[in-house]
Amino acid sequence: MTHPEDLLADYADGTLPDDERAVVDVHLSSCETCREEVALASRAIPALASLPEEPVPFGVTEPIVAEARRIVQQRRPAWGRIQWAAGLAAAACLVLLAVVAVPRLTDGTDEEQTLRAPAAEAGIGQEGVGGTTLEALPALELLDRDLDERDARRLAREAAKVAPSVPRTSDAAVEAPDDAIGCLVASGATLDDRDVLVRLIQARYLGTPAYVGVFHEGPGGGEPPERVVVWIVSKADCTILTLLSQSL
């Protein structure tokens, strides 16, 4: 028996023209196989329609936009990057990092001590400590959400998926006198030619208001980074809440 299979989807949808529907009805009256299939299809349709649309979880697409930004910044000549950063600051759109050119932090200030001490503890030399590059400063993402260890691991995994950022040496050392970066630095995070801050997030971590820094960390000297480091500190006192790293 020939079955009108090409009509059965429309038949079950109720979108078949009358003449073709009549043909199918005649067929169904004598074909148990097709009757059963139409019954099964008719139950599948509402089941599929009942599947809820789920919200996109935290952290899925943010690294994609960060990657898009990185690609654009790589294309842009140096003067363009400076114009871009200046434009962002002027517009004050989401970027709360007021980028101010200052001398490199190598003149023995308190901040330098804060910067250097943990780096030395970690066995990292201090010679490279200086300003981070303009393009290394991401916008602060404000998340009204409580993160946990699993979220921290996701942040690392997702940052590992975007192309590694190669730190560049910039003549214009910059300081970001911003609470988030200041807090990360105060807790021991370093911003030098070994590290690129790829994401900066304000959220809660296990109930504590927190800043999250996601870094690509490498050997410096223009070499590509080797790992992702997620650094989560208390917003109130800048103590480290958790740290984790993942190889790139």
Binding site: A9, A41, R43, A44, A47
Partner: peptide, 27 residues
Amino acid sequence: IGTVKSRLHRGRVALGRALGVPTLRER
């Protein structure tokens, strides 16, 4: 488009079976 319609129908039938809904007879 014909392939879409065919896959749609066959897919619905397969899903209906996987859902374990009563059928007229098992094949």
